[in-house]
Design a binder for these strands. Structure first.
Lengths: 242, 242
DNA sequence: CAGTGGTCTAGACCACACA
DNA sequence: GTGTGGTCTAGACCACTGC
């Protein structure tokens, strides 16, 4: 009768969920009950200890492994990593959403859209065959009428032929492309650089001012889809919480 | 021949795993079977369609939601997000590991370690009480004898009192702290800035050159543990693959 | 080849949010 | 109230891999 519900009378603790177990296990990692490098008890033993099903322990352990605290291997068991390999996780920002979230007015302006033969450097970047046609787009994103981000994008016409017919006046290149061709793999790069001529003109800053640069390379089914360079005006600060 | 278990006679397909289901569902998102904004069938219906248990469908859907494709709510059902909110996931880099991975020689140099009363700006950043003591560390990480990163760190002595007794000559502050006080929550910021006096001296660059700045704020049990400013020499490019 | 994690099942109850 | 996702269970089989 006891039990969980049907609450018995007394000190019956509530049933443990995988979150409770996860927290409890994390506590043992923190307090060195299981020091880095050691192997912790197997799932069955833990399930017995916590008085729950193995599946519950499994989920707790699986998530701790995903979080970078544990290394799990069949047969070998679960070991505590020496230095937790924490993973940062941040949303790939959609410019429009990012700006509107702050309450600022968003505006988009297309500077140029043209079709051209991919230059050598781009072929190298995107892994294109020489002579491949690409769409080149240059546009600006404004927050409260102030230039916020310069976007320079190249789209592989072999991967997204319909990009040739879209004028990108009403559609944001990023959002349009996401609808046309959901990506599967992305390489992201972040760096700092001195503003060049184009950046200084568009972002309305001086040549040489520091610019936060984000580069994104997108692949679908092994083929390069698009390469984007996002230049942020000085003062931009990318944030992520882990 | 047939089947996995109790196989019937013939075209018995192998049992579907949550990965198969996930891939199948993702296909329907790609091909617009379920367009952005629409609500997809509930778990029971999908389980019936795929001929599996609801828990299997649940895991597939849960992961797709984690991956940023779906929005799930009790009672309301599961809806397709208009623009997939993809998450980038990257390892929080350990400087030493990052450098050694490239094959370069790694060297660490401590410039200064001292205990002081947290200045106002730091109290604001870390949420410390006025007058709180902190350890301040300034050090450099070298790759092949060239300055790679300037690290400036403040440690909350209320959270990590033993930091007062560690001299940080042999131990890297980051690695030492990770051993002493595994963190639970982290705020990361990335930005570009002009090199100031300190950065230019340590990184051996000119004042005003663009510096890639990473800031990290770490919390444990609601208390601020440490605040770090990592300045990277020009040319640094942070990479992550999603 | 044997032990560990990986996954699936069928059923159950629960929490939540909306009507 | 009622329907949806969220989680747990007890048991089962499987797949991998270190011994």
């Amino acid at each position: 009768m006891p039990a969980r519900q049907t609450g018995g009378g007394m000190t019956k603790e509530k049933r443990l969920g995988y979150r409770d177990i996860k927290a409890s296990l994390l506590g043992r990692l923190h307090d060195r009950t299981w020091p880095p490098g050691s192997t912790i008890p197997n799932e069955s033993a833990l399930a017995a200890e916590f008085g729950c099903a193995r599946a519950t322990v499994n989920r707790a352990l699986r998530e701790l492994a995903e979080d970078g605290f544990l290394d799990r291997r069949r047969r070998a068991g679960t070991r505590v990593l020496n230095a937790p390999e924490r993973h940062a996780k941040f949303q790939i920002p959609s410019v429009r959403a990012e700006i509107e979230k702050t309450g600022a007015d968003y505006r988009y302006h297309l500077i140029q859209k043209r079709v051209l033969i991919a230059p050598d450097w781009l072929c190298g970047q995107m892994g294109l065959a020489a002579g491949q046609q690409v769409v080149h787009i240059r546009c600006v994103h404004f927050a409260n009428q102030r230039p916020y981000q310069l976007e320079e994008r190249w789209i592989n016409l072999a991967a997204v032929p319909q990009a040739a017919d879209e004028n990108f006046v009403a559609n944001l290149p990023g959002e349009w492309l996401l609808r046309e061709q959901p990506y599967s793999d992305v390489d992201l790069f972040f760096s700092a650089m001195c503003a060049d001529q184009m950046q200084s003109e568009v972002l309305n800053i001086s040549v040489g001012e520091p610019v936060f640069l984000g580069e994104r390379m997108t692949w679908f089914a092994g083929k390069s889809v698009t390469y984007v360079r996002l230049s942020f005006a000085p003062g931009y600060r990318m944030h992520t919480r882990v």
